[in-house]
């Protein structure tokens, strides 16, 4: 669900940025893009928390997993390094006057970031379901739909790369969210809230 919402935020960022007038200042484009992404991440975090409190915890109980230990600190350091690299690159590009556009609208130039995003999203879903599908065989059909959908859109969608790339990202986001909804539905069907009796 979180991945689907973040992809949706990415799509929204590109869409809103494309709606801005041609002569919009760089800072406005940056604000629109990153405000969309921050809102998507915030919404994903709030939704996940709300589902845990209202659906998961009353059915299968509450647990706060331990943090700490060597592997957890390694993950924190890697996350911080990623954020720092991102901020430094962004600052460098803004200083150099480049527009941080998620969609390259040049008809002859492919945006490797977007292609990589699409490929990583599909591969990540494949890895996720191979490890976590837990008997939900239908998720493999969703993966097939994702791959076939992207290929079909690539062959049929007109326009330049920027116009082509939006529907696949939206499709992948939508399928990730459908998969999450299916998992939640299955979970709710197979569990029921505990009765508030004495423990």
């Amino acid at each position: 669900m979180v991945v689907g919402l973040i992809l949706l935020g990415y799509f929204l960022a590109g869409y809103l940025e494309a709606l801005l007038p041609e002569n919009s200042p760089t800072w406005m484009r940056v604000v629109v893009i990153y405000a969309s992404l921050v809102m998507a991440v915030g919404f994903a975090y709030w939704t996940r928390r709300a589902i845990k409190r209202r659906i998961t915890w009353p059915r299968t109980g509450y647990a706060a997993y331990r943090r700490g230990g060597k592997s957890w600190w390694i993950k924190i350091v890697i996350a911080c390094l990623n954020v720092l690299t991102f901020v430094v690159v962004l600052a460098f590009l803004i200083r150099k006057g480049h527009v941080m556009s998620v969609w390259n609208l040049s008809p002859k130039t492919w945006n490797p970031r977007v292609v990589l995003l699409i490929v990583i999203s599909i591969v990540a879903y494949a890895i996720w379901i191979s490890r976590m599908s837990g008997g939900h065989w239908w998720k493999w059909l969703v993966l097939l739909l994702m791959i076939l959908g992207v290929i079909t859109l690539a062959l049929l969608a007109p326009g330049d790369f920027g116009q082509w790339a939006r529907p696949p990202v939206l499709l992948i986001a939508f399928l990730w969210l459908c998969s999450a909804a299916g998992t939640l539905y299955s979970y709710v069907r197979h569990t029921k809230p505990a009765t508030p009796e004495a423990e």
Binding site: G61, A63, A64, R66, A194, E199
Partner: peptide
């Protein structure tokens, strides 16, 4: 050991015991 804290329902679900046995 694997959690900071949890509730009774979590242990009930994970262990598969009945309430009396778990208590």
């Amino acid at each position: 050991w694997g959690v900071k804290e949890c509730d009774f329902l979590y242990l009930l679900h994970e262990t598969g015991m009945n309430k009396g046995n778990l208590s």
